[in-house]
Each structure stands twice: as C-alpha cells, then as structure tokens.
C-alpha cells in the first residue's frame, strides 16, 4: 500500500501555518542584538529630546517651541530607527533561510510559498509593532513629563507676577480680585499648554509612522525575493526609501518639466512608487491643523493598499524562484 502523495493542490492555505512561521520569525529576530541596540538608541534620543528646549530663541510662546522640539525629535527618532529596523530585519529573512538551508526543510513540508512569505512578513510586522509601541510609550511619557514641568512653571510664574503687581495699598477685596483674575489667566495658559501637547495627534502620528514602517518592510521583502545577497537588499531598500519620499517632488517636477524625457521619468516614479511622504503628518500637527481620524484612516488605507500590492508582487516573484 503506497502512501498518499501530498501535492500543493491538495494543501489549502492555512492562517495557522502563517502564524506559526510569524511567531518563529519574531523569536529569531528578537535574539539578534542589533535590534536592541537600535531600540536603545531610539529610546535614548527620545529621552534626550527634552534637552532641546534650551535652543528656543526667546521666551515668547516658549512652551510651543519646547513641545515642538520634543515632538519632532521623538517622531523623527521613531521614524528613522523604525525604518532601519524594518529594512535590516526584513532584508535578512529570506537570505538567512537560504544560507542556513532551513528553507528547504520548511518548503519540503506541506507549506505554501505564500504562507512562508506571509509568515516571514508578519513576523517582521510584529517586531515593528512592538518596537513602535515601546518607543511610542516612552515618547508619550517624555511629552507628559515636559507638559507637567511647563504647566507648573507657567502657573507659578503667572501667580507670582500677579502678586508682584498688587499694590501694597490694595484692599483685601482688590487683592482677592487680582488673584482670582491671575488664577483664571494661569488656568487658561495651562489649558493652552495641554492643548499644545496634543496626545491625540501624537497617537495618530504614531499610527501613520507604523503604517510607513510596515510598507517599508513589505518593500524590502519584495526586493529580497529576487536579490542574491542581503547587502543588495539593504542598499536597494534604502534607495527605495529615499525615492519614496521623493514622490511629491516628482509630482511637481512632472508639472513643470519641459523635456519629454524628464516628464516620462517623473511619471514612472509617480506611477510605480508609493508616496512615503504621505505618511509624515508631523507638519500638520505643528501647524495646529486638526488631523481628523478620517484623514488618518485614509493614510492607513493607502498603506494597507500598498502593502497588499507589494506582497502580491513578492509572491509573484517568489513562487517562481528557483531555490
């Protein structure tokens, strides 16, 4: 009696297998010291952000600038270190499997190449979610700490200023009236500082940064499906990262270019590459523009759409790759 043959046609797609590979990938990645270094550097930078307050030009609306510097540094650090983690972590997924020959063992079992690919991607995605969560938590803590310092200082300054302004000959009623007014002014200033902190905006910005990182990871995975070395994948991913941020410039260039070649190049860049600048909402936050959840949802949808497109491309390449 011969054993039943298992072909790819008889094995159905299994989210369970994808999850198993994802968890395994995450475990593998968390064993590498480089990610701890990256996260440590990011946390250090976010933590040090409050020292930027010394670089404000004057006292006028100082809290706005101080909080702006902290938010810029925090979001910038999360974006940069997150991007490095996304690229380096994902770039080594397939080459490492090929080098260690573990991919043969896995694909010899009833595992679809698509499951393998998705498992690897979700493993990297989990690492990114954890990294952004940790960095975001510290970032919010730094903002909260600065806000507390600023609100206390502002309150005391306002009250002291009012005390000094009260005439020595003032009656108790006049004194009480002046202090009540100062109290109202201080409360207004404190409310203004709290508004400037904008925790809701920060959370929204973190969500868009995470979307960008997930897209970068997908793009890197796509490159690694046909790359022969990890270095090539890392370099090409970095190039794609910069080109992705160039898309708005390419759009402008397309409108203004006079030569057909220039127009064609700008068109190709605009058509093929995702616009990574679309995920940067920092400017909106500091401009005091309201970043509605609907806008964030649009950005998330845009990111999800491109992750889907990139993973489809990765699958198309990987399914025919000779291993």
């Amino acid at each position: 009696m011969s054993a039943p043959t298992v072909t790819s046609e008889t094995v159905y797609f299994s989210p369970g297998r994808v999850w198993t590979i994802a968890v395994n990938t995450l475990t593998e990645m968390t064993r590498q010291k480089i990610f701890y270094f990256m996260i440590a550097f990011a946390l250090l930078m976010i933590g040090a952000a409050s020292f930027f307050s010394i670089f404000t030009f004057g006292v006028e609306a100082e809290y706005v600038t101080q909080l702006k510097f902290i938010k810029d540094t925090g979001l910038g650090a999360i974006s940069v270190f997150g991007s490095i983690i996304a690229i380096v972590a994902t770039a080594q997924l397939l080459p490492a499997e090929l080098e260690n020959r573990t991919i043969y063992t896995i694909l010899a079992k009833p595992v679809h190449r698509l499951e393998f690919l998705l498992g690897k991607y979700f493993g990297a995605a989990l690492l990114l979610v954890i990294s952004v969560f940790l960095m975001g938590l510290l970032f919010l803590a730094v903002v909260a700490l600065k806000e507390r310092t600023l609100t206390r200082a502002t309150y005391h300054e306002t009250m002291e200023f009012a005390e000094r302004g009260i005439s020595k000959t003032a009656t108790p009623e006049q004194r009480q009236k002046a202090l009540a007014k100062a109290e109202r002014d201080a409360a207004q200033a404190v409310a203004e500082i709290r508004k400037t902190s904008g925790y809701g905006g920060i959370v929204k910005a973190l969500a868009t940064v995470l979307c960008k990182l997930l897209l970068i990871a997908a793009m890197t995975l796509f490159l690694s499906t046909f790359a022969t070395s990890m270095v090539f994948t890392v370099v090409m991913s970095a190039m794609l990262y910069f080109c992705g941020h160039l898309v708005p410039v390419a759009q402008q260039f397309y409108d203004r270019a006079e030569s057909w070649l220039g127009k064609l190049m700008a068109l190709v860049v605009n058509w093929v590459l995702p616009n990574l600048a679309a995920f940067d909402v920092a400017d909106d936050l500091f401009a005091g523009l309201e970043l509605a959840w609907l806008k964030v949802l649009k950005i998330v949808c845009y990111g999800a759409f491109y992750v889907l497109v990139t993973l489809t491309l990765a699958h198309l390449v990987f399914r025919q790759r000779e291993i």
Binding site: F69, L75, G76, S79, V209, Y241, A282
Partner: peptide, 12 residues
C-alpha cells in the same frame, strides 16, 4: 527635505 520622516527634525 527628502529624508521624509526626519523633515521636522532636520528643520529643528
């Protein structure tokens, strides 16, 4: 400017 995620940080 083209560093994208660090545009604000670059400005600072």
């Amino acid at each position: 400017a083209l560093l994208g995620g660090v545009r604000a940080l670059g400005a600072d």
